[in-house]
Structures are given as C-alpha cells and as structure tokens.
Simulated assay, not measured.
Amino acid sequence: MSEQIVITPVSGKGDLDAFIELAYRLNADDPNWVPPLRADMRELLTPGKNPFHEHAKVQLFLARRGDKVVGRISAHYDELALEQPPEQGMGPGTGNWGLLEAEDEEVNAALIARAEDWLREQGMTRVLAPISLSIWEEPGLLVQGHDHPPMIMMGHHKPHYQGWIEAQGYAVAKKLYTYDLEVENGFPEIVNRIVKLGERSKNITVRRVDKSRFEDEAQIILGILNEAWSKNWGFVPFTETEKAYGAKKLKPIILEGANMIAEIDGEPAAFMISWPDINTKLIDMKGKLFPFNWAKLLWWLRNPQSPNFRVPLMGVVKKYQNTRIASQLAFMMIEYIRRYAVGEHGAKRAEVGWILEDNQGMVAIADAIESKVNREYRIYEKQL
C-alpha cells in the first residue's frame, strides 16, 4: 500500500522552492519540455511582483507522500474575470486552477479535489481549467502537438494528463489552436494581391513599432487589444499596471520590424506582434540564468537569429471588425513581418496563435496563408 497523500498550502520560501522545482523533476525525461526560467516562475507567483495578484486571489498547494513532494496545483480566481458576462466564458462564480503537475493519477485526483474545495470555500460555483495563472499567460491543456517543443509563452504537458483530468468530471469548454506555417517562400498569390491593393491605398499606413517611444506604442497596442478582444470568449481586460508591467517584460524581445501598427487616416486601427522564439535558447539553460546563461541570452537578444517566430496576438478596432479592410490589414502586417523575419533574422517557420476554435475571422486568415494546426489546447469546465 502506498503512503497517504497529504496536501498542504504552500507556506514560506521552502515550499515555494519545492513548488517550482517539481516541474523540472517530473518533466526531465521529456525532450520537448522547455524549462522556464526559475526567476520568471518565482516572479509569476509572487504578490508585489506580478500585478495579476492585485486583482486575484491565489492559493498554491503541494502534495506529498511522506517527505517526498509528488504534486502541485494552483487554485485561484480573478476579480476582473468575475465581472465579465457569463456568455463570454468567465463571469460570476468562475474560478480556476492551473500549474498542475502530478506523479500519478491518484495524486492528480487529490490535487484537483483540493483545488475545487478551496474554490468552493471562496464562493466559486464553476471551474475553468487549467489556466496558469491568467488567461493571458498559458491557458489550456496541450492535447495535440506533444512531439515538438512549444514556442514562447505556450504550455507543454504530459499526454496522460488529458485522461486524468477528464476522469474528474471535466468537459471541454473551448479548444485553442496554434497554426504552423513555412515563411521562407512567401504566401499564396491571392494574399500578395490583397497586400498590393492595400499598399496602393492612400488611407492605409502600416508601420513598424518605434522602440524609442516604446511605452507610448505599448499603450496603443494594449488599448486596441482591450477594445478589440472585449467580446471574445475568455476575455479579461488588462489593468494599467499590467500594461506597464507587460511592456517592461516584453521589451527585450521586441524587434521593431516584427511588430506592426496599422493606421487608417492617421488613426491606429490594428496591430500585430511577433516574437523570435526564445525557447530555442531556454531549452538548453535548464531554467537557470546564472552563472553564464544570462550573458548568452543577452548577447542573443541583441540580434536574434531564430528559425522560428511566433505571432501571439493581433487586434482590429471594433469599427473595422467584420469588414474587408480588417483582413486586408492583417495580411499586410503579417507579410511585412514575414519579410523582415526572413530577411533579417533567418526565419523559416512561424506559429500563429493561440486562436479560438470558433474565431471564424482568424481561422479564415490562417487558412488563407496555408497554415496548418500543429497544436491543440483545451480549457475544461466543471460545475462545483
């Protein structure tokens, strides 16, 4: 008979260290798991450093058998998510769990049950999971695409977690897709024609992000994002503190030519951001910056030569959504980013996403550029 599983709240530095370290041990045998930087994980989980905690309540749990840590989970709810309309996925009574790691199915079941109990204690009546920690970070469980490493800010999970979670009474709430495409040789001719038409328009300007005034540019991008995505499933708005925090965190990987703002008659109308895939460097760092990895990473970021780029976000102001000009702006921005990434940084492939399964506009754009689904994530739900 195995030893009893004991689940306790994380308390103090030793527990937090154990919470962080467990993922490295349980995933050590997976060549496609990318070890996150330990410093980034600690920042994510620390109130006062990550502004998510300003409007959320988070409880971390550890599972032990005897003295051995065998599992972990976060249970949390976001006050801003509770204020969203229920028909958009979040809403009153909706809590979350995430950051799940478990040695076996028994531990998995015990951790999920403890997270559910905590959420009930907080007055939650429904779970959306896994979400780690915010919907803007690493939402969903990977169920397709385990055979290759994830790109920057995308999760990677053991294949058997799917069955373990579904066995606890969870049903699929939403599927999220990422799309893979070859970028060296350009897009189909119909896309090129749409781009050329846009270039002839006197009303349309597509420009690079200007890092010399990066804070202002970030405000434009995140302002469009908050408006453009406000009716999307799962949407939670960024606070002003989160906007400033996100801009500071992402600035080192922002390349001007890989990030675009589109204007119509001089007014910002859309944006598209793209990042070189820093995971190609992190995978060999084992989650540690010191003693020498920080210098290697800093040197690489000066002029990253990366075969892979990720397009995580784009948005079009509501005024132009569901119009022909929205797709035209999207094709122009992604073509300009493609030219730059290939010409300046040696890009060979790109990944677009995540994209909601029922986001018809983005799915149509992904199909038009002949990209293919390479990863599927699932967000599950359960009534408490």
Rank of each mutant, 00 (worst) to 15 (best):
243 K>V: 15
258 A>S: 11
288 K>V: 13
252 P>G: 11
265 D>P: 00
259 N>K: 04
273 I>C: 08
270 A>Q: 05
279 N>E: 10
279 N>C: 11
276 P>K: 13
265 D>M: 11
242 E>K: 04
281 K>G: 06
257 G>Q: 08
261 I>C: 08
253 I>C: 02
242 E>I: 02
269 A>V: 00
244 A>Q: 10
283 I>S: 06
262 A>C: 08
268 P>A: 12
281 K>E: 14
265 D>Y: 07
287 G>H: 08
245 Y>L: 11
248 K>Y: 04
259 N>L: 06
242 E>L: 08
284 D>Y: 11
288 K>R: 15
244 A>T: 07
240 E>S: 14
281 K>H: 06
269 A>L: 03
258 A>T: 06
248 K>L: 10
257 G>W: 02
260 M>Y: 02
238 F>S: 10
242 E>Q: 14
244 A>P: 00
286 K>C: 10
270 A>R: 01
246 G>M: 14
254 I>E: 03
258 A>F: 08
282 L>A: 09
238 F>K: 04
248 K>V: 01
265 D>I: 05
244 A>K: 11
245 Y>P: 02
254 I>H: 00
269 A>D: 01
236 V>E: 07
251 K>L: 14
261 I>L: 12
250 L>K: 00
281 K>P: 00
256 E>P: 00
237 P>V: 13
245 Y>T: 07
246 G>V: 09
279 N>Y: 05
285 M>L: 04
285 M>S: 05
286 K>E: 15
245 Y>E: 13
241 T>V: 12
282 L>F: 05
240 E>T: 10
288 K>W: 06
269 A>W: 00
276 P>H: 13
243 K>S: 15
261 I>W: 02
262 A>T: 06
241 T>Y: 04
273 I>L: 12
241 T>H: 12
283 I>H: 02
256 E>H: 01
270 A>P: 00
268 P>L: 09
284 D>M: 10
256 E>Q: 07
236 V>I: 13
256 E>R: 01
260 M>V: 01
287 G>P: 03
283 I>F: 02
254 I>F: 08
255 L>V: 11
247 A>Y: 06
252 P>H: 06
273 I>H: 02
